[in-house]
């Protein structure tokens, strides 16, 4: 009787969202792939080989004898992340988006919409936008992320009165919005809704602070529920500090 060893193989495209040194010339790379979700694997770095960096767009092949093990990666870089062409702030929000995917998405679970959304976000050129507009765009990306992982916020109408006007507070428990008048007695327990989400008013610093607090609360809620060693966001917290 012969034993047939089946090798698991995944061929896909994706975005590198994390890498960790393992030994002298091996990296453990995390890729957010289009059809297979988060894939992790070893990658041996050779002198003449490709040295990938976070946020590179790659075509890759993952191989392993056992599906549950890390396996090995091989890839070609399709688009390098323009690391030096953008300033600190643009890089910070893009790496923060990748950190959220790295920490909150489960392994090998397809989420093509989210993948496309992240891809569009990190490839977007923000050079014409000011810092506030950049963060506004980022907060909207986070809200879409929350929606796609099951934490969608219902911001269309007041959950108590049904009014679509004067929406001001968000419940941290239900993610539903209420008007200023309804929420006022519990204002210390509620999150404030950034007005750029419900009106066309130009974005201001207070709104950005509220927006960052709002999404950060729900992102942290997901993180706390996961069995991870590091229960904090590094780059997202930096973003909070910048606007505190």
């Amino acid at each position: 009787m012969t034993n047939i060893i089946r090798i698991m193989k995944i061929t896909d495209s994706g975005i590198i969202i994390g890498q960790k040194k393992y030994g002298i010339n091996t990296l453990i790379i995390s890729i957010f792939s289009k059809k297979n979700g988060i894939i992790k694997g070893f990658y041996r770095v050779s002198k003449k080989g490709i040295k990938p960096i976070i946020l590179d767009l790659v075509d890759f092949q993952w191989k392993s004898r056992v599906e549950e093990s890390l396996g090995y990666l091989n890839f070609e870089i399709r688009n390098s992340f323009p690391l030096y062409s953008e300033e600190y702030f643009s890089n910070l929000i893009k790496i923060s988006a990748s950190e959220i995917c790295l920490k909150l998405l489960p392994p090998k679970e397809e989420n093509e919409l989210l993948y496309e959304d992240l891809k569009t976000f990190i490839m977007s050129n923000n050079q014409d936008l000011n810092d506030l507009e950049k963060v506004k765009k980022y907060i909207i990306w986070e809200l879409r992320f929350l929606e796609k992982v099951g934490y969608g916020l219902d911001l269309k109408k007041c959950s108590v009165t049904g009014s679509k006007k004067d929406l001001y507070y968000v419940s941290p428990k239900t993610g539903q919005v209420v008007t200023k008048k309804v929420g006022h007695p519990w204002k210390n327990k509620l999150l404030v809704l950034p007005q750029f989400l419900v009106s066309n008013e130009p974005v201001n610093i207070k709104d950005i602070q509220n927006g960052l607090q709002l999404t950060f609360f729900f992102l942290n809620k997901i993180l706390e529920g996961l069995n991870l060693k590091q229960k904090k966001f590094i780059f997202r917290e930096e973003l909070n500090k910048k606007f505190s």
Binding site: G18, Q19, K20, S30, I95, S98, E99, L102, K103, K229, Q230, K232, F233, I234, F235, E237, E238
Partner: peptide, 10 residues
């Protein structure tokens, strides 16, 4: 360095 995967902040 700052690293999300290693949990290294400033």
């Amino acid at each position: 360095v700052l690293s999300a995967i290693d949990g290294v902040g400033p």
